[in-house]
């Protein structure tokens, strides 16, 4: 579904992503883990078309992508952002946020679709006409997920979707993401600094360090400690160390 080859992104003099390649099959979930500045979010932004200054090969469903994307692309690929407080327009109700993708793509039947979307992410129908500040963090992230699903995309890009949430809410959102993927056969590319979160959702994980993908590892190998790169081993050790406590 997604094929990326030798992706490079420059910010002025600095090369933030230095030749990253990976492949994600349809209906699969690929995770990228790394520390801040490792380039993991930059890869996601290049993939989403938000940052057009990249070079290399990006194909989605066999179609090579150009830096500028058309409306069709955005119907098929959607994104969920890290901070649910910042990704919803503060002056727009949930209803407005959810209807926007439908209006942009000229999809009709708005009322029914919004009600269905709210039900799908387990939000009460009463939340429909609330403003973001009237919702909790978890509810906001549910709205953001519902918005991404409005145009019925095939690919969902997840940029640290739970790291601004409390752990109990994180569990609910992760479960929701797992359910949605199963129900809609979505392809996920997820970015997080939390190895356990990534491993929970993604069977295949790419470890990023200094703009390079130093290792791609299956989740079973990771859990069993069969790592090849020292950075992967270090991240794994830090994550398990706390679990043993």
């Amino acid at each position: 579904m997604i094929d990326i080859g030798d992706l490079r992104v420059r910010f002025g003099e600095v090369e933030a992503v230095k030749g990253v390649s990976f492949h994600v099959a349809r209906g699969a979930a690929f995770g990228m883990v790394g520390e801040s500045g490792s380039g993991k979010s930059t890869v996601l932004r290049a993939l989403s078309g938000l940052n057009p200054d990249w070079s290399g090969r990006v194909t989605i469903d066999g179609v090579a992508m150009t830096p500028r994307r058309g409306r069709d692309f955005y119907r098929r690929v959607q994104m969920v952002f890290q901070d649910p407080y910042g990704s919803l327009h503060p002056r727009q109700t949930v209803d407005r946020a959810l209807s926007e993708p439908l209006l942009v793509h000229g999809i009709g039947d708005i009322d029914r679709r919004i009600r269905a979307a709210l039900a799908e992410v387990a939000l009460p129908a009463a939340a429909r006409f609330r403003y973001p500040h009237q919702l909790s963090g978890g509810q906001r992230q549910r709205v953001a997920i519902a918005r991404a699903l409005m145009s019925e995309p095939e690919v969902l890009l997840l940029d640290e979707p739970t790291s601004a949430l409390d752990v109990s809410v994180q569990a609910e959102v992760l479960n929701l993401l797992a359910d949605l993927q199963a129900r809609r056969d979505l392809t996920y590319v997820m970015v997080s600094h939390n190895l356990a979160v990534i491993a929970h959702l993604c069977p295949m994980i790419g470890v990023m360090q200094g703009g390079e993908m130093v290792e791609q590892i299956g989740v079973d190998d990771l859990r069993a400690g069969r790592t090849k790169h020292p950075h992967t081993a270090e991240l794994r050790a830090l994550s398990t160390e706390l679990e043993e406590a």
Binding site: L50, R71, R75, D83, G86, S87, R91, V104
Partner: peptide, 25 residues
């Protein structure tokens, strides 16, 4: 901001983003 990035991701045109999302703010 992320909420403008989120609108860009829906595929909205620049004019639409300015008039419906930036101007009200």
């Amino acid at each position: 901001t992320d909420y403008i990035a989120a609108v860009r991701i829906t595929g909205a045109s620049g004019l639409r983003i300015i008039l419906r999302h930036v101007v009200p703010m």
